[in-house]
Write a protein that binds this DNA or RNA. Structure first.
Lengths: 222, 222
DNA sequence: GTATGTAAATGACCGGTGGTAAGTTGTTTC
DNA sequence: GAAACAACTTACCACCGGTCATTTACATAC
Protein backbone atom coordinates (compact mmCIF):
# COMPACT_ATOMS: atom_id res chain seq x y z
CA UNK A 1 0.00 0.00 0.00
CA UNK A 2 2.33 2.70 -1.27
CA UNK A 3 1.81 6.37 -0.55
CA UNK A 4 3.23 9.10 -2.73
CA UNK A 5 4.65 12.18 -1.05
CA UNK A 6 2.10 14.31 -2.86
CA UNK A 7 -0.68 12.24 -1.42
CA UNK A 8 0.78 12.65 2.06
CA UNK A 9 0.92 16.41 1.64
CA UNK A 10 -2.61 16.56 0.37
CA UNK A 11 -3.91 14.54 3.31
CA UNK A 12 -2.15 16.75 5.80
CA UNK A 13 -3.36 19.90 4.12
CA UNK A 14 -6.91 18.65 4.17
CA UNK A 15 -6.69 17.84 7.84
CA UNK A 16 -5.34 21.32 8.55
CA UNK A 17 -8.08 22.96 6.58
CA UNK A 18 -10.62 20.84 8.40
CA UNK A 19 -9.18 21.87 11.73
CA UNK A 20 -9.11 25.47 10.62
CA UNK A 21 -12.76 25.53 9.69
CA UNK A 22 -13.58 23.71 12.91
CA UNK A 23 -11.76 26.42 14.83
CA UNK A 24 -13.64 29.11 12.95
CA UNK A 25 -16.88 27.35 13.68
CA UNK A 26 -16.08 26.96 17.34
CA UNK A 27 -15.31 30.67 17.57
CA UNK A 28 -18.58 31.50 15.87
CA UNK A 29 -20.46 29.20 18.22
CA UNK A 30 -18.75 30.76 21.20
CA UNK A 31 -19.50 34.25 19.94
CA UNK A 32 -23.14 33.40 19.43
CA UNK A 33 -23.41 32.01 22.95
CA UNK A 34 -21.67 34.98 24.53
CA UNK A 35 -23.58 37.56 22.50
CA UNK A 36 -26.82 35.81 23.34
CA UNK A 37 -26.16 35.77 27.05
CA UNK A 38 -24.56 39.18 27.52
CA UNK A 39 -25.52 41.25 24.50
CA UNK A 40 -23.16 42.48 21.84
CA UNK A 41 -21.87 45.59 23.54
CA UNK A 42 -21.21 43.99 26.88
CA UNK A 43 -19.51 40.93 25.43
CA UNK A 44 -15.74 41.12 25.36
CA UNK A 45 -13.36 39.45 22.99
CA UNK A 46 -11.69 37.80 25.95
CA UNK A 47 -14.98 36.24 26.97
CA UNK A 48 -15.54 34.92 23.49
CA UNK A 49 -12.01 33.57 23.35
CA UNK A 50 -12.50 31.93 26.72
CA UNK A 51 -15.77 30.37 25.57
CA UNK A 52 -13.93 28.99 22.55
CA UNK A 53 -11.16 27.73 24.87
CA UNK A 54 -8.47 29.77 23.17
CA UNK A 55 -6.92 33.18 23.74
CA UNK A 56 -7.92 36.51 22.31
CA UNK A 57 -5.15 36.94 19.74
CA UNK A 58 -6.12 33.61 18.26
CA UNK A 59 -9.59 34.95 17.65
CA UNK A 60 -7.97 37.80 15.80
CA UNK A 61 -6.22 35.32 13.55
CA UNK A 62 -9.59 34.38 12.12
CA UNK A 63 -11.64 37.56 12.51
CA UNK A 64 -10.21 41.00 11.97
CA UNK A 65 -12.47 42.84 14.36
CA UNK A 66 -15.32 42.31 16.76
CA UNK A 67 -17.67 43.64 14.11
CA UNK A 68 -16.33 41.09 11.67
CA UNK A 69 -17.36 38.41 14.08
CA UNK A 70 -20.78 39.96 14.29
CA UNK A 71 -21.17 40.10 10.55
CA UNK A 72 -20.11 36.52 10.20
CA UNK A 73 -22.97 35.62 12.49
CA UNK A 74 -25.39 37.71 10.49
CA UNK A 75 -24.97 35.97 7.19
CA UNK A 76 -26.61 32.67 8.22
CA UNK A 77 -29.53 34.65 9.58
CA UNK A 78 -29.98 36.50 6.32
CA UNK A 79 -29.72 33.24 4.45
CA UNK A 80 -32.30 31.74 6.78
CA UNK A 81 -34.77 34.47 5.96
CA UNK A 82 -34.02 33.92 2.30
CA UNK A 83 -34.89 30.25 2.65
CA UNK A 84 -38.21 31.09 4.25
CA UNK A 85 -39.06 33.60 1.53
CA UNK A 86 -38.18 31.09 -1.17
CA UNK A 87 -40.46 28.55 0.42
CA UNK A 88 -43.27 31.11 0.31
CA UNK A 89 -42.48 31.67 -3.34
CA UNK A 90 -42.61 27.95 -4.00
CA UNK A 91 -46.04 27.74 -2.39
CA UNK A 92 -47.18 30.76 -4.38
CA UNK A 93 -45.95 29.25 -7.64
CA UNK A 94 -47.68 26.00 -6.80
CA UNK A 95 -50.95 27.90 -6.44
CA UNK A 96 -51.21 27.03 -2.78
CA UNK A 97 -51.66 30.62 -1.67
CA UNK A 98 -55.26 31.61 -2.18
CA UNK A 99 -55.44 35.23 -1.08
CA UNK A 100 -53.46 38.30 -0.15
CA UNK A 101 -53.82 37.72 3.56
CA UNK A 102 -51.97 34.43 3.40
CA UNK A 103 -49.31 35.98 1.21
CA UNK A 104 -48.63 38.83 3.64
CA UNK A 105 -48.65 36.37 6.48
CA UNK A 106 -46.01 34.31 4.73
CA UNK A 107 -43.76 37.29 4.06
CA UNK A 108 -44.04 38.82 7.51
CA UNK A 109 -43.53 35.45 9.14
CA UNK A 110 -40.45 34.80 7.04
CA UNK A 111 -38.82 37.95 8.34
CA UNK A 112 -40.05 37.39 11.86
CA UNK A 113 -38.85 33.80 11.85
CA UNK A 114 -35.29 35.04 11.72
CA UNK A 115 -35.91 36.88 14.91
CA UNK A 116 -37.54 33.96 16.65
CA UNK A 117 -34.78 31.57 15.78
CA UNK A 118 -31.91 33.84 16.77
CA UNK A 119 -33.26 36.82 18.69
CA UNK A 120 -29.91 38.14 19.81
CA UNK A 121 -28.39 37.92 16.37
CA UNK A 122 -31.38 39.64 14.91
CA UNK A 123 -31.17 42.43 17.43
CA UNK A 124 -27.56 42.74 16.56
CA UNK A 125 -28.39 43.12 12.91
CA UNK A 126 -30.54 46.07 13.84
CA UNK A 127 -27.88 47.47 16.09
CA UNK A 128 -25.43 47.15 13.29
CA UNK A 129 -27.67 49.10 10.98
CA UNK A 130 -27.59 52.02 13.32
CA UNK A 131 -23.97 52.05 14.07
CA UNK A 132 -21.75 54.52 12.40
CA UNK A 133 -19.43 51.77 11.38
CA UNK A 134 -21.21 50.84 8.21
CA UNK A 135 -18.86 52.91 6.13
CA UNK A 136 -15.82 51.52 7.85
CA UNK A 137 -16.16 47.91 6.91
CA UNK A 138 -13.87 46.19 4.54
CA UNK A 139 -15.51 46.68 1.16
CA UNK A 140 -15.73 42.94 0.48
CA UNK A 141 -17.71 42.31 3.64
CA UNK A 142 -19.96 45.27 3.11
CA UNK A 143 -20.61 44.23 -0.46
CA UNK A 144 -21.38 40.66 0.55
CA UNK A 145 -23.75 41.88 3.20
CA UNK A 146 -25.46 44.33 0.90
CA UNK A 147 -25.84 41.65 -1.73
CA UNK A 148 -27.43 39.16 0.60
CA UNK A 149 -29.74 41.74 2.06
CA UNK A 150 -30.70 42.89 -1.39
CA UNK A 151 -31.53 39.37 -2.48
CA UNK A 152 -34.15 39.11 0.23
CA UNK A 153 -35.71 42.37 -0.84
CA UNK A 154 -35.66 41.17 -4.43
CA UNK A 155 -37.52 38.02 -3.50
CA UNK A 156 -39.97 40.01 -1.46
CA UNK A 157 -40.70 42.34 -4.33
CA UNK A 158 -41.04 39.40 -6.69
CA UNK A 159 -43.55 37.83 -4.33
CA UNK A 160 -45.59 41.01 -4.31
CA UNK A 161 -45.44 41.35 -8.08
CA UNK A 162 -46.56 37.77 -8.56
CA UNK A 163 -49.31 38.34 -6.02
CA UNK A 164 -50.56 41.24 -8.11
CA UNK A 165 -50.34 39.25 -11.36
CA UNK A 166 -52.26 36.38 -9.86
CA UNK A 167 -54.92 38.77 -8.57
CA UNK A 168 -54.26 38.13 -4.89
CA UNK A 169 -53.61 41.77 -4.07
CA UNK A 170 -54.40 45.09 -5.65
CA UNK A 171 -51.92 47.40 -7.34
CA UNK A 172 -49.14 48.71 -5.16
CA UNK A 173 -45.62 50.06 -5.43
CA UNK A 174 -43.75 46.85 -4.70
CA UNK A 175 -40.56 48.66 -3.80
CA UNK A 176 -42.17 50.80 -1.12
CA UNK A 177 -44.26 47.85 0.03
CA UNK A 178 -41.23 45.64 0.58
CA UNK A 179 -39.62 48.43 2.57
CA UNK A 180 -42.78 48.84 4.55
CA UNK A 181 -42.99 45.19 5.51
CA UNK A 182 -39.39 45.05 6.65
CA UNK A 183 -39.76 48.33 8.50
CA UNK A 184 -42.77 46.91 10.29
CA UNK A 185 -40.97 43.81 11.43
CA UNK A 186 -37.93 45.71 12.65
CA UNK A 187 -40.01 48.43 14.25
CA UNK A 188 -42.40 46.11 16.05
CA UNK A 189 -39.66 43.92 17.44
CA UNK A 190 -37.72 46.92 18.59
CA UNK A 191 -40.69 48.61 20.16
CA UNK A 192 -41.85 45.55 22.04
CA UNK A 193 -38.35 44.67 23.12
CA UNK A 194 -38.21 48.05 24.71
CA UNK A 195 -41.68 48.24 26.15
CA UNK A 196 -42.50 44.75 27.21
CA UNK A 197 -41.33 41.94 29.35
CA UNK A 198 -40.31 38.83 27.53
CA UNK A 199 -43.38 36.67 27.77
CA UNK A 200 -45.83 39.51 27.43
CA UNK A 201 -43.69 40.88 24.62
CA UNK A 202 -44.32 37.87 22.44
CA UNK A 203 -48.05 38.25 22.85
CA UNK A 204 -47.90 41.93 21.99
CA UNK A 205 -45.76 41.31 18.98
CA UNK A 206 -48.18 38.75 17.64
CA UNK A 207 -51.08 41.14 18.16
CA UNK A 208 -49.33 44.01 16.44
CA UNK A 209 -48.19 41.79 13.60
CA UNK A 210 -51.68 40.41 13.23
CA UNK A 211 -53.04 43.92 12.92
CA UNK A 212 -50.34 44.82 10.41
CA UNK A 213 -51.17 41.80 8.26
CA UNK A 214 -54.88 42.60 8.44
CA UNK A 215 -54.30 46.21 7.46
CA UNK A 216 -52.15 45.28 4.51
CA UNK A 217 -54.53 42.61 3.32
CA UNK A 218 -57.61 44.81 3.75
CA UNK A 219 -56.07 47.80 2.04
CA UNK A 220 -54.87 45.74 -0.89
CA UNK A 221 -57.88 43.47 -1.18
CA UNK A 222 -59.47 43.44 -4.60
CA UNK B 1 -29.27 103.82 46.18
CA UNK B 2 -28.76 101.62 49.18
CA UNK B 3 -28.25 97.89 48.90
CA UNK B 4 -28.84 95.51 51.74
CA UNK B 5 -26.44 92.66 52.23
CA UNK B 6 -29.23 90.19 51.64
CA UNK B 7 -29.94 91.79 48.30
CA UNK B 8 -26.29 91.55 47.34
CA UNK B 9 -26.21 87.87 48.22
CA UNK B 10 -29.38 87.20 46.27
CA UNK B 11 -28.02 88.94 43.18
CA UNK B 12 -24.83 86.94 43.31
CA UNK B 13 -26.70 83.68 43.79
CA UNK B 14 -28.90 84.42 40.84
CA UNK B 15 -25.93 85.14 38.62
CA UNK B 16 -24.31 81.90 39.68
CA UNK B 17 -27.44 79.95 38.95
CA UNK B 18 -27.68 81.64 35.58
CA UNK B 19 -24.09 80.73 34.79
CA UNK B 20 -24.71 77.21 35.93
CA UNK B 21 -27.67 76.70 33.63
CA UNK B 22 -25.69 78.33 30.83
CA UNK B 23 -22.92 75.84 31.40
CA UNK B 24 -25.38 72.96 31.32
CA UNK B 25 -26.86 74.31 28.12
CA UNK B 26 -23.47 74.72 26.51
CA UNK B 27 -22.60 71.14 27.37
CA UNK B 28 -25.87 69.95 25.88
CA UNK B 29 -25.25 71.95 22.74
CA UNK B 30 -21.75 70.58 22.47
CA UNK B 31 -22.99 67.04 22.99
CA UNK B 32 -25.63 67.45 20.32
CA UNK B 33 -23.06 68.75 17.84
CA UNK B 34 -20.58 65.99 18.60
CA UNK B 35 -23.19 63.22 18.56
CA UNK B 36 -24.52 64.58 15.29
CA UNK B 37 -21.15 64.63 13.60
CA UNK B 38 -19.63 61.40 14.96
CA UNK B 39 -22.52 59.32 16.20
CA UNK B 40 -23.17 58.40 19.80
CA UNK B 41 -20.88 55.43 20.15
CA UNK B 42 -17.87 57.04 18.53
CA UNK B 43 -18.22 60.30 20.42
CA UNK B 44 -16.02 60.56 23.46
CA UNK B 45 -16.59 62.54 26.61
CA UNK B 46 -13.31 64.32 25.97
CA UNK B 47 -14.55 65.48 22.60
CA UNK B 48 -17.76 66.78 24.09
CA UNK B 49 -15.84 68.54 26.84
CA UNK B 50 -13.53 70.04 24.24
CA UNK B 51 -16.48 71.25 22.18
CA UNK B 52 -17.89 72.88 25.30
CA UNK B 53 -14.46 74.40 25.97
CA UNK B 54 -14.09 72.73 29.34
CA UNK B 55 -12.48 69.53 30.60
CA UNK B 56 -14.02 66.13 31.03
CA UNK B 57 -14.37 66.09 34.82
CA UNK B 58 -16.34 69.30 34.57
CA UNK B 59 -18.83 67.58 32.33
CA UNK B 60 -19.20 64.95 35.02
CA UNK B 61 -20.08 67.67 37.49
CA UNK B 62 -23.30 68.23 35.58
CA UNK B 63 -24.06 64.83 34.05
CA UNK B 64 -23.45 61.57 35.83
CA UNK B 65 -22.77 59.42 32.78
CA UNK B 66 -22.61 59.58 29.03
CA UNK B 67 -26.04 58.01 28.92
CA UNK B 68 -27.34 60.75 31.17
CA UNK B 69 -26.21 63.26 28.61
CA UNK B 70 -27.99 61.31 25.94
CA UNK B 71 -31.20 61.18 27.90
CA UNK B 72 -31.07 64.87 28.60
CA UNK B 73 -30.97 65.42 24.85
CA UNK B 74 -33.86 63.04 24.30
CA UNK B 75 -36.39 64.68 26.54
CA UNK B 76 -36.91 67.83 24.43
CA UNK B 77 -37.40 65.61 21.41
CA UNK B 78 -40.05 63.55 23.13
CA UNK B 79 -41.74 66.73 24.30
CA UNK B 80 -41.58 68.06 20.76
CA UNK B 81 -43.43 65.02 19.44
CA UNK B 82 -45.94 65.46 22.20
CA UNK B 83 -46.57 69.05 21.12
CA UNK B 84 -47.19 67.94 17.54
CA UNK B 85 -49.60 65.24 18.63
CA UNK B 86 -51.48 67.69 20.83
CA UNK B 87 -51.83 70.08 17.93
CA UNK B 88 -53.34 67.23 15.88
CA UNK B 89 -55.73 66.59 18.73
CA UNK B 90 -56.72 70.25 18.83
CA UNK B 91 -57.49 70.18 15.13
CA UNK B 92 -59.44 66.97 15.56
CA UNK B 93 -61.47 68.43 18.43
CA UNK B 94 -62.16 71.53 16.37
CA UNK B 95 -63.63 69.33 13.65
CA UNK B 96 -60.95 70.34 11.19
CA UNK B 97 -59.97 66.78 10.34
CA UNK B 98 -62.43 65.42 7.84
CA UNK B 99 -61.29 61.85 7.20
CA UNK B 100 -59.06 59.05 8.40
CA UNK B 101 -56.37 59.77 5.84
CA UNK B 102 -55.73 63.22 7.26
CA UNK B 103 -55.75 61.83 10.78
CA UNK B 104 -53.12 59.20 10.01
CA UNK B 105 -51.11 61.76 8.15
CA UNK B 106 -51.13 63.99 11.21
CA UNK B 107 -50.05 61.23 13.56
CA UNK B 108 -47.31 59.84 11.34
CA UNK B 109 -46.03 63.31 10.59
CA UNK B 110 -45.94 64.18 14.28
CA UNK B 111 -43.63 61.26 14.97
CA UNK B 112 -41.61 61.85 11.84
CA UNK B 113 -41.24 65.53 12.59
CA UNK B 114 -39.11 64.72 15.59
CA UNK B 115 -36.75 62.92 13.28
CA UNK B 116 -36.61 65.71 10.76
CA UNK B 117 -35.87 68.34 13.35
CA UNK B 118 -33.14 66.39 15.15
CA UNK B 119 -32.15 63.33 13.10
CA UNK B 120 -29.15 62.36 15.16
CA UNK B 121 -30.98 62.69 18.44
CA UNK B 122 -33.82 60.65 17.07
CA UNK B 123 -31.45 57.97 15.88
CA UNK B 124 -29.93 58.03 19.28
CA UNK B 125 -33.31 57.46 20.88
CA UNK B 126 -33.62 54.33 18.82
CA UNK B 127 -30.10 53.28 19.59
CA UNK B 128 -30.80 53.74 23.22
CA UNK B 129 -33.80 51.48 23.02
CA UNK B 130 -31.65 48.65 21.80
CA UNK B 131 -28.78 48.93 24.15
CA UNK B 132 -28.39 46.44 26.90
CA UNK B 133 -28.17 49.30 29.29
CA UNK B 134 -31.85 49.87 29.62
CA UNK B 135 -31.97 47.89 32.79
CA UNK B 136 -28.94 49.67 34.17
CA UNK B 137 -30.25 53.18 34.31
CA UNK B 138 -30.93 54.97 37.51
CA UNK B 139 -34.58 54.20 38.21
CA UNK B 140 -35.56 57.88 38.32
CA UNK B 141 -34.25 58.50 34.83
CA UNK B 142 -35.76 55.39 33.46
CA UNK B 143 -39.11 56.22 35.02
CA UNK B 144 -39.06 59.76 33.66
CA UNK B 145 -38.26 58.46 30.22
CA UNK B 146 -40.95 55.79 30.35
CA UNK B 147 -43.47 58.36 31.50
CA UNK B 148 -42.78 60.79 28.73
CA UNK B 149 -42.75 58.10 26.11
CA UNK B 150 -45.96 56.69 27.48
CA UNK B 151 -47.68 60.06 27.33
CA UNK B 152 -47.13 60.20 23.59
CA UNK B 153 -48.59 56.75 23.17
CA UNK B 154 -51.54 57.76 25.32
CA UNK B 155 -52.24 60.76 23.12
CA UNK B 156 -51.88 58.64 20.02
CA UNK B 157 -54.37 56.09 21.31
CA UNK B 158 -56.75 58.88 22.31
CA UNK B 159 -56.52 60.30 18.80
CA UNK B 160 -57.41 56.93 17.33
CA UNK B 161 -60.29 56.44 19.74
CA UNK B 162 -61.70 59.86 18.94
CA UNK B 163 -61.25 59.13 15.25
CA UNK B 164 -63.36 56.01 15.67
CA UNK B 165 -66.01 57.84 17.70
CA UNK B 166 -66.28 60.58 15.09
CA UNK B 167 -66.59 58.01 12.33
CA UNK B 168 -63.33 58.88 10.61
CA UNK B 169 -61.92 55.38 10.80
CA UNK B 170 -63.32 51.93 11.29
CA UNK B 171 -62.97 49.81 14.41
CA UNK B 172 -59.44 48.88 15.39
CA UNK B 173 -57.45 47.89 18.44
CA UNK B 174 -56.06 51.30 19.31
CA UNK B 175 -53.26 49.86 21.42
CA UNK B 176 -51.88 47.71 18.64
CA UNK B 177 -52.51 50.46 16.12
CA UNK B 178 -50.48 53.01 18.08
CA UNK B 179 -47.67 50.50 18.33
CA UNK B 180 -47.91 49.85 14.63
CA UNK B 181 -47.62 53.51 13.70
CA UNK B 182 -44.62 54.05 15.89
CA UNK B 183 -43.02 50.86 14.66
CA UNK B 184 -43.50 52.04 11.12
CA UNK B 185 -41.83 55.36 11.71
CA UNK B 186 -38.89 53.83 13.50
CA UNK B 187 -38.56 50.99 11.03
CA UNK B 188 -38.77 53.15 7.93
CA UNK B 189 -36.25 55.68 9.18
CA UNK B 190 -33.88 52.94 10.18
CA UNK B 191 -34.22 51.06 6.95
CA UNK B 192 -33.73 54.06 4.76
CA UNK B 193 -30.86 55.33 6.84
CA UNK B 194 -29.20 52.03 6.19
CA UNK B 195 -30.06 51.59 2.57
CA UNK B 196 -30.07 55.02 1.07
CA UNK B 197 -27.92 58.01 0.54
CA UNK B 198 -29.06 61.12 2.30
CA UNK B 199 -30.87 63.00 -0.39
CA UNK B 200 -32.37 59.94 -2.00
CA UNK B 201 -33.21 58.66 1.48
CA UNK B 202 -35.61 61.48 2.14
CA UNK B 203 -37.48 60.76 -1.05
CA UNK B 204 -37.70 57.07 -0.26
CA UNK B 205 -38.90 57.76 3.24
CA UNK B 206 -41.68 59.99 1.98
CA UNK B 207 -42.74 57.36 -0.53
CA UNK B 208 -42.77 54.60 2.06
CA UNK B 209 -44.59 56.78 4.56
CA UNK B 210 -47.10 57.78 1.92
CA UNK B 211 -47.81 54.15 1.19
CA UNK B 212 -48.13 53.42 4.89
CA UNK B 213 -50.64 56.20 5.36
CA UNK B 214 -52.60 55.06 2.34
CA UNK B 215 -52.68 51.47 3.56
CA UNK B 216 -53.86 52.47 6.99
CA UNK B 217 -56.50 54.83 5.67
CA UNK B 218 -57.76 52.35 3.07
CA UNK B 219 -57.90 49.46 5.48
CA UNK B 220 -59.75 51.45 8.10
CA UNK B 221 -62.00 53.40 5.76
CA UNK B 222 -65.67 53.10 6.55
C1' DG C 1 -7.47 94.74 52.71
C1' DT C 2 -6.84 90.30 54.53
C1' DA C 3 -8.24 85.77 56.13
C1' DT C 4 -11.53 82.15 55.48
C1' DG C 5 -14.89 79.23 53.50
C1' DT C 6 -16.91 77.30 49.34
C1' DA C 7 -18.09 76.12 44.74
C1' DA C 8 -16.17 75.37 40.13
C1' DA C 9 -12.74 73.42 37.53
C1' DT C 10 -8.71 70.60 36.55
C1' DG C 11 -4.43 67.39 35.88
C1' DA C 12 -3.35 62.95 36.90
C1' DC C 13 -4.95 58.73 37.37
C1' DC C 14 -7.69 53.88 37.29
C1' DG C 15 -9.97 49.69 35.44
C1' DG C 16 -11.23 47.65 31.51
C1' DT C 17 -11.56 46.86 26.35
C1' DG C 18 -10.36 46.28 21.40
C1' DG C 19 -6.47 45.34 19.07
C1' DT C 20 -1.15 44.28 18.16
C1' DA C 21 3.87 42.81 18.31
C1' DA C 22 7.14 39.71 19.51
C1' DG C 23 8.17 35.34 20.88
C1' DT C 24 7.07 30.18 21.73
C1' DT C 25 5.50 25.61 20.44
C1' DG C 26 4.70 22.05 17.45
C1' DT C 27 4.34 20.25 12.83
C1' DT C 28 5.68 19.91 7.86
C1' DT C 29 9.29 19.76 4.43
C1' DC C 30 13.68 18.73 2.60
C1' DG D 1 18.11 16.66 11.89
C1' DA D 2 17.55 21.49 10.53
C1' DA D 3 15.07 25.01 8.31
C1' DA D 4 10.55 26.80 7.39
C1' DC D 5 6.06 27.45 8.52
C1' DA D 6 1.63 27.70 10.93
C1' DA D 7 -0.85 27.99 15.24
C1' DC D 8 -0.93 29.92 19.34
C1' DT D 9 0.21 32.72 23.48
C1' DT D 10 2.23 36.09 26.75
C1' DA D 11 2.84 40.75 27.34
C1' DC D 12 1.72 44.90 25.85
C1' DC D 13 -0.45 49.47 23.79
C1' DA D 14 -3.91 53.12 22.95
C1' DC D 15 -8.07 54.66 24.17
C1' DC D 16 -12.29 55.47 26.76
C1' DG D 17 -15.62 56.12 30.62
C1' DG D 18 -15.26 57.57 35.03
C1' DT D 19 -12.94 59.23 39.71
C1' DC D 20 -9.96 61.84 43.02
C1' DA D 21 -6.88 64.87 45.10
C1' DT D 22 -5.68 69.37 44.27
C1' DT D 23 -5.84 74.08 42.62
C1' DT D 24 -8.32 78.26 41.15
C1' DA D 25 -11.69 81.85 41.63
C1' DC D 26 -14.84 83.99 43.91
C1' DA D 27 -18.10 85.17 47.97
C1' DT D 28 -18.19 86.15 52.83
C1' DA D 29 -16.67 87.95 57.41
C1' DC D 30 -13.89 90.83 60.05
Amino acid sequence: MPHSQDEHKAVCRQRREREKSQRIQSILDAARRVFASRGYLKSTMDEIAMAAEITKPTVYLYFRTKDDLLLSLMQPLIDDIRGELESVEARLDAGKIGDGGVLFDGIVTAFYHGYESLPETFRVVQLFQQRDLIGELRPEIRAALDDRGRINFDICRRLLTKGMERGLIGPVNVHAMADLIWALVVGVIQLEDFKGDERKGHRLKRKTFALAKRLMADALAL
